[in-house]
């Protein structure tokens, strides 16, 4: 047996129990959370704390009568629409600002100041302008996503190794090619960080938007349940929202791993 084989066997025989420990830890944490939830329901009563089982039953019921699907689709529609527009603006603006450092300097304080606007407070005003359809909610989602993506991507654009850009120029790459093949790929770690922060925000912004104006959607269901003092309905809506965020996050993580296969694994972060 060559030394290379021995090394790989050693690391594999370590890797399997480690992965197992992580999975076991996750299950233990989930069980502990469920137990705490159940305890809360018994201690405070179902009006303050809907029991896990009742919540699960409600979700199954919602799945059965089709409400789960229509709610999820409605919320996803608004989140995805806002998310895509916010991302597109948040990514392209830093690239535009890169073309003119002076314009970037001039514009930056305005962007930062506009960040301070409470976005949910805009919703009634946006309804006034755009009616009660998807548009006002999608705009609020767009605003949330835009700032997060813009700030992370802008930091990424500024942090690109100038030496790599010079190298690319010297070998004859056009500025467009450099933006695509050097800058964009360099800032992917920043971009994915932004995405991971922005995605749950996008979903919760859509849900909060639905509290204010909607005829369907996860937020609409939560708000209606609240008005009826149906705590189980509120909890069911929250669980559905959390599950949605977890699924979206898993998709982003898979995309990130695919895009950054080249990166060396960080020893400290290895399981």
């Amino acid at each position: 047996m060559s030394s290379a084989e021995i090394t790989s066997e050693l690391s594999e025989s370590h890797a399997i129990p480690r992965q197992w420990i992580v999975t076991a830890g996750r299950i233990a944490l989930a069980v502990a959370l469920l137990a705490a939830w159940e305890w809360g329901a018994r201690a405070f009563g179902p009006l303050f704390f809907a029991p896990p089982l009742a919540t699960a039953q409600r979700i199954v019921e919602m799945a059965g009568n089709g409400k789960l699907l229509t709610d999820t689709i409605a919320t996803l529609r608004v989140s995805v629409l806002g998310f895509v527009i916010g991302c597109a603006c948040g990514v392209s603006l830093p690239f535009l600002l890169r073309l003119s450092p002076r314009a970037a300097e001039a514009i930056e304080p305005f962007i930062m100041a506009s960040m301070g606007i409470p976005k949910y407070a805009l919703t009634p005003w946006l309804i006034l302008w755009f009616g009660i359809g998807d548009a006002p909610k999608a705009i609020v989602v767009t605003l949330f996503v835009f700032y997060i993506v813009f700030i992370t991507v802008f930091a990424g654009v500024r942090g690109v190794d100038q030496r790599l850009i010079n190298m690319a120029r010297i070998v004859g790459a056009s500025e467009r090619t450099i933006a695509r093949k050097v800058i964009w790929i360099s800032l992917l770690p920043f971009f994915f960080t932004g995405l991971k922060v922005a995605l749950p925000r996008a979903v919760s912004a859509a849900i909060v938007g639905e509290f204010l104006v909607a005829v369907e959607g996860i937020g609409f269901s939560i708000e209606r349940a609240r008005q009826l003092s149906d705590t189980t309905g509120v909890f069911a809506g929250i669980v559905v929202a959390v599950t949605l965020v977890l699924i979206i996050n898993a998709v982003v993580n898979a995309l990130e791993r695919r895009a950054m296969r080249w990166r060396p694994t960080d020893r400290d972060m290895q399981i």
Binding site: R163, L164, N166, M167, V182, I185, M260, W262, R263
Partner: peptide, 14 residues
Amino acid sequence: IGYVTQDDNLLPWR
């Protein structure tokens, strides 16, 4: 004019 710099400046993702 080609330029071989002090740092290799290889693109780390390639």
